[in-house]
Nucleic acid binder design. Structure first.
Lengths: 187, 187
DNA sequence: GGAATAGGTGGACGTCGCGTCCAGTTATAA
DNA sequence: TTATAACTGGACGCGACGTCCACCTATTCC
């Protein structure tokens, strides 16, 4: 699926690692899952595990990848308002909602892999930056643009979503708040 | 300074610990400073250190405390636009700028202590929540209020500030972006 | 089909930071 | 001065990390 030069046995082990990690991350808090746990659950040695994934975070990012890529395609070429064709404010609100859904479904993976400052280094973040940047331009907002892009992505931090959900807010309430934000900022 | 029942030698050691930690945090990245480093630099044993501070984070929070309290007083009783009396949008923008300044000066401490999800548990965060909540009310924004409070505080995450600064944005640019945000959201 | 080889495998091992524990010490009260 | 409570500091056990390397196995080339 990723490397074609990959040997058959290696590919099988990669799949087992990902499957085992997915299950572990589903079952318990990310920070309690050790590399050794994943190796054992996958029936693989630590050396093998480290050969491919240098850290727990890298595994979580690999698991998230598919879901994030699907969203990226929608943003580029999907139907409006997620894809091109709708007014910027509406597109931003829809984007917010889509990420919210993603966090609701796969938040545990995001918390395992894209926490804190690491988040800014991922490919997904770069893509989202470009997306929001283009929406700002489309809305005719030039002032403070460079900083605004990141400021508008900050509310999507996985930790924040988790905190708000734990504080009793529903997924709907959070998405609604983000909608208000989107509409007011992109006027 | 904190406990009056504290023995003289204990108080001296507390001061030494805080001074040593402040210096270490200033000199190198927070995550490379170990509890053992702090103990050694303070000329104190690990047991003594742990007696007062359960973690590196707790020490950083203690060091930040003074600065944050000063801001809190300004917000409650200081002159406008930071304190009461100015229109909500202006007060939010000023608040944003004040926190930005704080991050510029003491960001290393914030990164050492109030990173990720831990941030939401601090007293300062609770206070800021209340502040922004009251500004939302004053601005007549009821829709999505519960979630909006946290969403408007998200851009102040220490990791984000550091990331933006490292990406080449000036403190000024970030503050300007925040000002645009404040003015647009609180109309 | 059989060697050669590049790549894959796994677990033992060294290292490091954490946090505890407790025997000895010192301030404070009686 | 003695009794007591609080404080001190370093030795220690633990757990996770990440490396290393001797041993396999799929693949390639003749």
């Amino acid at each position: 699926m990723r490397e074609q030069g990959e040997r058959a046995d290696a590919a099988k082990n990669r799949a087992r690692v990902l499957a085992a990690a997915a299950e572990l991350f589903r079952d318990r808090p990310a920070e309690t899952v050790t590399m050794e746990d994943i190796a054992r659950a996958a029936g693989v040695g630590k050396g093998t595990l480290y050969r491919r994934y240098p850290s727990r975070e890298a595994i979580a990012v690999a698991l998230l990848d598919d879901h994030e890529r699907a969203l990226q395609e929608q943003l580029i070429a999907g139907p409006p308002p997620l894809g091109p064709g709708a007014p910027p404010a509406e597109r931003l609100a829809t984007f917010y909602r889509a990420v919210t859904d993603l966090l609701e479904q796969h938040g545990h993976l995001a918390l395992a892999g894209e926490t804190g400052a690491r988040r800014f280094g991922t490919g997904a973040y770069g893509f989202w930056r470009a997306h929001v940047g283009s929406l700002l331009t489309a809305a005719g907002i030039a002032e403070g643009r460079a900083a605004l892009v990141d400021l508008l992505l900050a509310p999507l931090a996985p930790e924040l979503y988790r905190y708000q959900r734990d504080a009793g807010l529903s997924s709907r309430q959070i998405a609604d708040g983000l909608t208000v934000l989107a509409e007011r900022v992109l006027a």
